[in-house]
């Protein structure tokens, strides 16, 4: 029964793997819920900021801030948000694939490309692929904080102000629902122009009193606004990571289950064959006597 024993150990090891994937699935499901809550919690902040910035930029059309001004794009900076850990299906790879396509197109037009990386997976990917990396932040954990991102964002914004890059884009996975994550690349800076409707609404609007002065307040606001957008993307990417991991681990557990079923069938057949053989040996032996 040598074959049968081998099959038994194989079933055992698959069962162990299944235990792990099932545990990971449950952990991911619990974390996903929390990550989704965080995602919703950070929305009001960005919304309020957008309103104030809208007011400010419309009230002071003569003061053009570089973040609001469009210029000819010679170099693009990417802030790339990825997860720190693997085992989450094709989440990071899908994003990188979309990104590489864009970057190639830019390089063909002979435009510069620079990166700021968030998350271990992006760091690992770009150390293999190459590219000019300005800054990186890793090990943000399950509860990312704005402070952890301030440095990375500032490097990019400084590069923009110095004219090293003329546009900043952010790449992350957008959370659609538990089953779907959407790899997204969006323009972060310059900020989109306010719509005609908003312009009309604010045309006859009062102006604020500024302390210390409008320019400084606007600068502060814009930096924080962009940080909050990046933070929002990081949180959203975190929710995507957990849900992708949950789905991937569920698939792995299911696969392990069907593999075990198949192997058990093979094992039972082998066992029965061995017993049948033994009986026929005994019977034929008895007949011979």
């Amino acid at each position: 029964m040598a074959g049968a024993k081998e099959i038994r150990t194989q079933i055992g090891s698959i069962k162990n793997t299944q235990k792990i994937t099932r545990a990971m699935e449950m952990v991911a499901a619990a974390k996903m819920r929390k990550a989704q809550d965080r995602m919703l919690a950070s929305r009001p902040y960005a919304e309020k900021m957008r309103q104030v910035i809208g007011h400010l930029s419309l009230a002071h059309p003569e003061q053009k801030h570089p973040f609001l001004e469009r210029r000819e794009v010679k170099a693009v900076g990417y802030i790339i948000i990825s997860s720190d850990r693997g085992l989450c299906g094709g989440l990071n790879n899908n994003l990188f694939r979309a990104l590489v396509k864009e970057v190639k197109a830019l390089q063909e037009e002979e435009k510069g490309v620079k990166f700021c990386l968030v998350g271990n997976k992006a760091v690992a990917f770009f150390s293999r692929v190459g590219g000019q990396v300005l800054a990186q932040a890793t090990q943000l954990g399950d509860v990312p904080h704005v402070e952890d991102l301030v440095g990375t964002v500032k490097v990019m914004l400084d590069a923009y102000l110095d004219g090293e890059v003329d546009e900043i884009r952010i790449a992350y996975n957008r959370f659609v629902n538990t089953m779907t994550q959407d790899p997204t690349v969006e323009r972060l800076v310059p900020l989109p122009e306010p719509s005609e409707e908003e312009r009309e609404k604010l045309k006859h609007h009062w102006d604020y009193i500024y302390e210390p002065d409008a320019r400084e307040v606007l600068e502060d606001l814009l930096a924080r606004y962009i940080e909050s957008l990046v933070y929002q993307s990081v949180v959203e990417n975190g929710a995507c990571e957990q849900s992708a991991r949950m789905v991937a681990m569920k698939a792995a557990s299911d696969n392990a289950g069907s593999l075990i079923d198949e192997l058990e069938l093979v094992y039972n057949k082998a066992r029965q064959a061995a017993i049948t053989q033994e009986i026929s040996e005994i019977v034929s032996g008895a007949a011979a006597v």
């Binding site: 700021c116 990375t152 490097v155």
Partner: peptide, 11 residues
């Protein structure tokens, strides 16, 4: 600025 430097340094 310090945070920015740190991020750069890490890179």
């Amino acid at each position: 600025e310090a945070a920015a430097l740190e991020a750069k340094k890490r890179a």
